[in-house]
Amino acid sequence: MDEKPASATYKIGQAAELLGIKPFVLRFWESEFPQLEPLRTASGQRMYSEEQLGLVREIKHLLYEEGLTIEGARKRLEEKGPSELLREVRDELRAIRDLLAGSNDSDMEVRS
Rank of each mutant, 00 (worst) to 15 (best):
L68G: 04
W29H: 08
S83G: 03
E3G: 05
Y10I: 10
E84V: 11
T41G: 12
E79G: 05
Y48G: 03
A6H: 09
K75N: 02
S31Q: 15
G67P: 02
E88R: 10
E30S: 04
K4N: 09
R90C: 02
L36H: 06
L77S: 05
L19H: 12
E17W: 10
R40D: 03
L53R: 09
W29V: 13
I70D: 00
E17L: 15
K4L: 15
Q35N: 08
K80M: 14
N104H: 06
T9N: 03
P5Q: 12
E65P: 06
V56Y: 01
E3W: 07
G20M: 11
I59M: 05
S83F: 05
V110A: 07
I70C: 04
A73I: 06
L55M: 05
F28A: 12
L86T: 09
L63S: 00
V89A: 11
L62E: 04
Q52V: 01
E58D: 01
M1I: 11
I21W: 01
R94M: 09
L39I: 09
E65V: 13
Y64V: 03
Y48L: 06
N104F: 07
R27W: 07
F24M: 15
A8N: 10
L86H: 10
E50S: 01
P82K: 12
G102V: 07
F24W: 14
R111A: 14
E79W: 10
I96P: 04
E58L: 07
E17M: 13
